[in-house]
Amino acid sequence: MKKIEFLPHIADVRIRLEADSLEQLFCASAEALSEMLYPGFCNDGKTLTIGRSLHIISMDRTTLLIDFLSELLTLAYTEKAIFCYVHIEKMSETQINAIVSGALVDGFEEDVKAVTYHEANVQKNETGNWETIVIVDI
């Protein structure tokens, strides 16, 4: 189970993510980022033409999520690609090894400047699911 909700923010984008596992929360966050960069791009069974591996170590699970998204954003811009799929090979609260795959694009629909730490707090909610807010600078 994973849920992505776009909430109001006066100038940027506030996203609420919820999932029944930490792995799914990371997959949901990547899905939300790709959807912002190029809405609908990953919907129609894209042929995957590019794959990259990510290895990130951070101080806790919240910074790990934001650092993961920042790396994914950098990768999107430097490779000029949208990464639709995340395969997590290994994960702890402070480390993730993942393979991301996607396809090349000519341009992006949204100018996502950065993924911020502001308001981010990965924690379990009352239902036992993992959730957090992510603010994206556009």
Binding site: A11, D12, H118, I135, D137
Partner: peptide, 8 residues
């Protein structure tokens, strides 16, 4: 207006 961290 609201930013992230610092206000704009």
């Amino acid at each position: 207006h609201e930013g992230y961290g610092f206000p704009i």
